[in-house]
Computed example of a mutant assay.
Amino acid sequence: MFDGIDIAVLPVADTGPPRELYVDAMGFEVVEAGPVRDPGLWARLWDLPLPPAESLLLGKPGSKGGWIRLVGVPGLPSPDAAGVPDRPGPYALDFYLRDPAATEDAVEKRGWTFVAGPVDYLLPGTEHPVRERMLDQTRSGLRHAFVQYREGRTRCVLGERPGLGVSEVNAVVFATGDLAGARTFVTDVLGGRVYFSGRFEGPAVERLLGLAPGEGFDAVIARGPASRNARLEFIEHLPPAVPRPPHAYPRVVAGCAMGDLDALAARLATGEHGASTGIIETAEGRQLGLRSHYGARFHFWQR
């Protein structure tokens, strides 16, 4: 059963700049680093066009998921800019910030830029205020949502470690052209629990993402039974007037430990939800890769 995203795998041509962003500016710790053993196997599991050479696992000790694995892939082409969510595929990572202004300043001093200034809005269907700003993470072709942490209202490692300024990854966001199918996949195949289903729209959301006036999108956000981070989020992609080419490779692979990998493999065997590698035996244990029909790539392993 799905119980949150344990590791967000980010393939990059050069791990140096994103390492500086996550470690130096956002306080992630290097948990392990080294060459990738059996690169052909991992290229297959992660659906990469070229074999990976190195791996850096970055984490927030004490967190329950939401770590980042930077995977160096020599020769990987530069990613297209994320832009607005107008095509299926990985779109964003979300983080909670204790002191947004301080973290944003540290990020900007290292040469990273934000799409616009911060915006304030109410979480759809609630009276909960949200302060959010969107970073352009160009090395992975992703947006990063920096969201104000609210003590006692926001579940993440910041509640356990008062000295931290930035949380683990608290959501991985994929845009999809089949939101209803993605929701069925989350609940019936992964066994996840949808805790939010609603629409994001309005002037603040338009400024945040650079949308046209009146544009918005529906979203589905899921956790597992333990309600831990990081969450899995699917948003409705906005078809552009001129179609954009599909992404050349997965910019994010959602890595999830599963309680019964055999049962998951059986549910995926028909191909109804995408192309699965089937279970692969590795030195690190049993693994399974999935290129889903919903714009998301997954890497599952036996918990």
Rank of each mutant, 00 (worst) to 15 (best):
G59Y: 13
G177R: 12
P79I: 00
A175C: 02
A102M: 03
G285N: 02
A219P: 11
A296V: 12
L50F: 03
G181Y: 13
R69H: 06
S55V: 02
D86R: 11
P240H: 08
E233R: 09
F298H: 04
V71H: 04
L158E: 07
P85Q: 03
G4C: 01
E272Y: 02
L10W: 06
A33Y: 09
I279S: 14
L58K: 10
H144Y: 03
T126K: 10
S227L: 15
A13C: 05
T270V: 00
R228M: 01
P225Q: 07
P203F: 02
Y294C: 15
G163I: 00
D3P: 07
F217M: 13
V107S: 12
F298A: 08
P17V: 01
G4P: 10
F200P: 01
V119W: 00
P61G: 11
E206M: 08
A230L: 09
P246K: 06
F196T: 07
F234R: 04
L232M: 15
D178A: 13
G202F: 11
A204Q: 14
Q137W: 05
L261T: 01
G65E: 03
E32M: 14
V107E: 15
E54I: 04
A266G: 11
P39F: 05
E281A: 08
P118G: 03
M258A: 05
V84T: 11
D94I: 04
L57T: 10
L290E: 13
S292C: 02
R153Q: 04
G89L: 05
L142Y: 02
F300E: 09
P213W: 08
W112T: 07
E233Q: 09
A212S: 15
A204L: 12
L76I: 14
G40V: 02
E54C: 07
L264K: 03
D80H: 00
A269R: 02
A106S: 14
S227Y: 08
I280Q: 12
V31E: 15
R87C: 01
G89C: 06
A257N: 04
D218E: 11
V107Y: 14
E168N: 11
V253T: 07
G202A: 08
L123R: 14
F174R: 00
P213G: 07
L209K: 13
S63V: 03
E20R: 12
G125M: 09
F95G: 01
D6H: 13
R133T: 13
L56Y: 13
P11F: 00
A175P: 01
L288A: 03
V189L: 03
S227E: 15
A241G: 11
G65R: 10
V194Q: 12
D94H: 14
R267W: 07
H273A: 02
G89Y: 06
P88Y: 03
V186F: 04
P124Y: 05
R183C: 01
T138K: 04
N229Q: 15
A43Y: 05
G192F: 03
A53V: 15
G285K: 09
F2H: 06
A82C: 10
T176P: 14
G40D: 10
A257P: 12
P162K: 15
A180W: 09
A116C: 12
A92P: 05
